[in-house]
Design a binder for these strands. Sequence first.
DNA 1: GTTCTAGAAC
DNA 2: GTTCTAGAAC
Length: 758
Amino acid sequence: MDMDVDETCKAQEEKPLLVILVGAPGSGKSTFCEDVMRSSSRPWVRVCQDTIGNGKAGNKAQCLSSAANALKDGKSVFIDRCNLDREQRSDFVKLGRAQIDMHAVVLDLPAKLCISRSVKRTGHEGNLQGGKAAAVVNRMLQKKELPKLSEGFNRITFCHNESDVVAAVNTYSALGPRDNLPHGCFGQKNPDAKVQVGIMKFLKKAPADAASSENSIRNSISPQTFEKQGSSCKAVEKFSSLSDNAVLKSKEVEKPAVRSGSHASHVSLDDVPTLAFPSISTSDFQFSHEKAADIIVDKVLEFSDKLGNARLVLVDLSHKSKILSLVKAKAAQKNIDTRKFFTHVGDITCLYSGGGLRCSVIANAANWRLKPGGGGVNAAIFNAAGPALESATKERAKSLLPGNAIVVPLPSRSPLFVREGVTHVIHVLGPNMNPQRPNYLGNDYGKGCKILQDAYTSLFEGFASILRTQAVQSGGRNEGLGTKSLEHSENSPRNHLTNTDQKMKRDEVHESEKRRKYKGSEDDFEIDFTHSRAGKIDIKEKKAVASTHKAWGSWAQALYHIAIYPERHKDDLLEISEDVIVLNDVYPKAQKHVLVLSRTEGLDCLSDVKKDHLQLLKKMHAVGLKWAEKFLQENASLSFRLGYHSAPSMRQLHLHVISQDFDSKHLKNKKHWNSFNTVFFRDSVDVIDEVSNHGKATLKDDDKLLAMELRCHRCRSAHPNIPRLKSHISSCRASFPAYLLENGRLVHAAAPAEAGSS
DNA sequence: GTTCTAGAAC
DNA sequence: GTTCTAGAAC
């Protein structure tokens, strides 16, 4: 190809198309090509293996050279052969190179139809006729691998029936020499859609910051199965406007897969962690495209080995993008695997809804203030992500230096999370070569290149760190960041400081919610208090009420009574000592579930605990541990956690010692689960540390936590309801999240000397 | 129709 | 904390 992509727009406007047909014999590939070519104003060449040898069947090599020649002449090409597996397609994809848009049209019609057409066919070019055809078609269909964007296609159109085919023919027929079609997957079926709706509905309701979960969700669901195309997404409209002709009139094909209700995109096939990133600094910051392209390709190459099966995608909005062409050409030169890195034309804020490309992480070409606005990608991403991104960003950092990147987990309330499945945004700041913008470098490309390299290094490192976190938390199986984001905001002192205001507000809200919730009890409290002043109330009760400012319902007194009058409950107690009592939870939420009850009067819950109580906490922990170990001797396969509820329902401080099987008929609702499996549950070891260091325990007393989506405590996968969760946990053997394995939070039997030693 | 949740009552 | 149940979800 001797056209100069650097120079002329013309070259890009007249970009030839290479369209690989994918389909069994009888699926209508030849007819498709003929129908398009009959009415197209674009110069097409059909390369048909069945006829390439002077009207007779030829081989793949002939097809390849014929296609290459046609492309060289600036013609668009149909590859008319079955191309049912990736291997077969890959050599043709390699013809694509930078200047050529690479499409696949999949004629995935019912096998019956293909077979009957093949059988009926007489004098067919491929000489596949009669009864033999049925067997051949069947065998081919069994082996078929549907194409993916990651093979190197810019666009894939799936046709499942005749009307899909008609629509696709119309789309391609209407394509003039200078027209482009939107990139992405269109019309793909999603066999799992039904199952997944419940979970997604769920996530939609998930509280802010609660679960920036990612691959565990992505593995099982596609956001669009429940979320209609976001109104903010204008990708298709943008593309339309690029097109002289009304190429996109055909509604069927225009719709990305994900928009068509029951035909939502099937994601699991192409569902690997993906980072989509815009070209940094080449737009507003006026960095040389040529130099930037070199840096991008070098950095991609450098990281491609470190990213496992993850993918990188360079995204630009326009088909005319010079940087995209440059990078694509250079990547091809360096033989970068298109499964690991490819370019994509699309709006980075609707890659999935607009083109079926799933990207769990997107990079933002940020400004140094990390603030919305300024136009371009930055404005678009902040706009699409909503205020959630702004606040999540603010928690992490206030500004960014050129050459740096910062990873921000996207709160699950963000439309980008819900609609696009984006779990993280990585803000990147590159060098600036624009005198009108901050940090102008003059024309010092020595510095500039260094900074741009650093920027991409930080970006890819950030992405790698997300992958690592997922791998650790999933025990290598399922990936989820739900706990991580919570734990992070909890443990990071920096977040703590910046969160203070917000947190106080939330507490206020929570307090008033609580008042409403306990209205009845509060009335009781008022009456009791009046009575107590009249001297009519038990002095113990008065003390307790006064000390906590919290009203307890009558049903919440059971443990208190036991603590004060243990002799009346002797038969129900496992152990009684001077300061603690051990008893079985009346409604155990696991095979083993006991309570270590403090006997200290007036100490109703964790919020009452002060430094004075440190010895008591340690005693309770020691006693709890003793019981856990006793249970472990009986059943070494159990593991235990010891901890307190941030806001217990029952009065009188008590430590839960609970086995992690959660195999219990009493575990019935979300609150039950989440009270033991979110940070609402405060591990005893942490409470002791916090009280010892700060004089009080950190409470995560938020109703939102208890209403969070249900996640497996081992693999962090999400489940739509309690029965399904219970069914999952009964068999999930993933290792526990790393967090629980630290500091003795999880109590389990000493590792056996060797597996099978029992 | 059955399953499941969530809110009120206790 | 549980139980009960209306009505939402399936």
